[in-house]
Simulated assay, not measured.
Amino acid sequence: MSNNPYLPEHAEVIDIIQETDVEYTFRLDTELEPTFGQFLEVSIPGYGEAPISVSDFGDGWLDLTIRRVGKLTDKIHELKIGDHLGIRGPYGNGFPIDKFKNKDLVIAAGGTGLAPVRSMINYFYNNLDDLKQFNLLTGFKNSESILFKRDIDNWKESIDLLITVDEGTEKWEGNTGLITEYVPQIEISAVSDMEVVVVGPPIMMKYTVKEFKKLGIPEEQIWVSYERKMHCGLGKCGHCKIDDTYICLEGPVFNYSEAKELID
């Protein structure tokens, strides 16, 4: 095996799940063992490399949920079962799930921000006794952009789950509006027992965190995940650097008490 940290390994695609018109989940055969919230560098020779969050993992496999947005991701969406994808990692710091145990956990995820927390949701879904209470808020642009519908069908059986869409249609009979509108509805038994995770577009995270702070949740009990122009994953290229902080090394998961100082 090469000692070159930039050299990817080739992982076979063993399953492909269409989530939406532009988002597919690729299950890869690999022995990599990520933690909740880490990412991989994903590549195809001649098409480039990009950081992709691990959306779930298990013994001998992991999932990457990839949105079609450009040259590399367009090519990835052409892959079929049995094809191979270059991967290296995992990189970054993930969520401190041991800190969440025996607490009231709230996860607020907007759009594709649901992908980086999907594995953690599945973990606690299968280990509900590890939490006192579990609330999940998810928001999407419209009903056609809802991710992981099969997972959601399972989660809502045991988790206090709320889904909202920005734009309602005649086909959508559920909640409408932004996640921020529903944060005040969360029942809080004791602020000291709460841990909050907020993941999504920057503007969504900014205002969702504000709503949780209005409820009296201390910044030290709020966690966010930054997706920011990561490139090498090794803290060498500087693409993701904010001041003295390398997001790929010290993040992508940050406690909000630290993250609030990371102004791009």
Rank of each mutant, 00 (worst) to 15 (best):
I152A: 03
L64R: 02
I97N: 09
K103T: 14
K149S: 09
T30A: 09
R118A: 09
P45N: 13
K103N: 13
P51H: 08
P45D: 14
E41L: 15
G111E: 09
K149H: 01
K156V: 09
L105R: 12
E23L: 12
S158V: 00
K149N: 14
S43L: 01
G89F: 11
Q133S: 14
L131D: 05
A115Q: 02
I76P: 03
L137H: 05
F95G: 08
W61R: 04
I52H: 02
K149A: 03
E41S: 08
I44W: 06
F36G: 03
L147F: 13
T25Q: 07
F95H: 09
G70D: 04
I52S: 00
L105N: 12
S53G: 04
I97E: 11
L161N: 00
G110F: 08
L105F: 12
P90N: 09
N93P: 00
P45V: 07
I121T: 10
N135R: 13
S55P: 05
H77W: 10
D29R: 15
L162Q: 06
V54T: 07
G70N: 04
K101S: 09
G60S: 12
F134T: 04
N93A: 06
G168L: 06
F36K: 03
I66W: 07
I81A: 02
D98A: 11
R88V: 09
L28Q: 06
R150E: 15
T138G: 01
I146F: 11
G94I: 10
S53K: 06
F26M: 10
N102T: 02
G86C: 05
R67G: 02
L40V: 01
G70A: 06
G70K: 01
D160E: 13
L114D: 00
F124K: 07
R68Q: 14
I81K: 15
V117E: 05
G58H: 12
G139D: 02
T30I: 08
T138N: 04
L131M: 08
Y123M: 10
R27L: 02
E49S: 11
L62K: 04
D56E: 11
G113T: 10
I121Y: 08
K80S: 14
L162N: 02
Y24C: 07
